[in-house]
């Protein structure tokens, strides 16, 4: 459903992504792996339209690389930010309503309530999103907002970071539930090898803006080049 073909991003003289190509079939949960600065967030930014990229990004059979940011949300690409970005001055419910009305093109308060329930935010529905939520709640709101746009593809940027192991396990179950419930295709940025191995059917590894490995988590993590780029960055 998503196909990247020679995606390249340059910031001035710096090449943040160079010739990245891979494909994600419908329904997959793909782990995006790599050390800090490898280009993972830049890849998300280029898929969701936050940075200009060269190459081809085909989503549902259409090249979306020229679509502006807001149009990508409407064709079904949802994303979260590593540092949560709630819409300021809006309540949690209003955050979802804006996402739904503009991202999905319809207003359905019942569905918003469902999303709030699934993401365990019902008790904070009318609280101010930017000031009254704890960090983990903000991370759940990030996902809830993305879900409200009714995406087919969900890009999750380090949503599991900073959770202790029990909470992480619960949250992984939650992601599986979302995956099934909403029929999603998911790409998740995550450092932890065990998490990737357990959650994902496939992993793609970036290093210095280049794709260096692509395969099942077992294959990828058996690759010496991957381990070399990887040791010491996150899995200590």
């Amino acid at each position: 459903m998503l196909k990247l073909d020679a995606v390249t991003v340059r910031f001035g003289g710096l090449t943040a992504l160079s010739d990245v190509s891979f494909e994600i079939p419908q329904g997959e949960i793909l782990g995006l792996v790599g050390p800090n600065g490898a280009g993972k967030t830049t890849l998300f930014n280029s898929i969701s339209g936050l940075v200009k990229a060269r190459g081809q990004i085909t989503f549902d059979g259409k090249n979306v690389i020229r679509l502006p940011l807001h149009r990508r949300a409407r064709v079904g690409i949802g994303r979260t930010f590593q540092i949560p970005q709630p819409m300021h001055h809006l309540s949690v419910r209003e955050n979802l309503a804006v996402a739904q009305v503009f991202g999905a093109g319809r207003y359905d308060p019942k569905r918003i309530d469902e999303i709030l329930t699934v993401m365990e935010l019902s008790h904070k529905a009318d609280a101010d999103a930017a000031s009254a939520l704890a960090l983990q709640e903000l991370k759940r709101l990030e996902i809830a907002k993305a879900l409200a746009t009714e995406p087919k593809l969900l890009l999750l940027d380090e949503v599991l970071a900073g959770l202790e192991s029990n909470a992480k396990r619960t949250f992984m179950l939650k992601l599986r539930e979302l995956h099934r419930l909403f029929g999603l295709t998911i790409v998740i940025v995550e450092h932890d090898i065990e998490t990737i191995s357990e959650l994902c059917t496939r992993a793609v590894v970036l290093n210095f803006g280049q794709l260096i490995a692509d395969g099942t988590p077992a294959e990828v993590f058996a690759n010496p080049a991957v381990m070399e780029s990887y040791t010491g960055t996150a899995h200590a």
């Binding site: 969701s48 502006p68 807001h70 994303r79 300021h88 001055h89 209003e94 991202g103």
Partner: peptide, 15 residues
């Protein structure tokens, strides 16, 4: 929302 959170607002589909 746009005033202070332009990217966050646009990324959910607001033009």
């Amino acid at each position: 929302a746009i005033a202070e959170s332009e990217d966050a607002t646009r990324v959910v589909g607001v033009n």
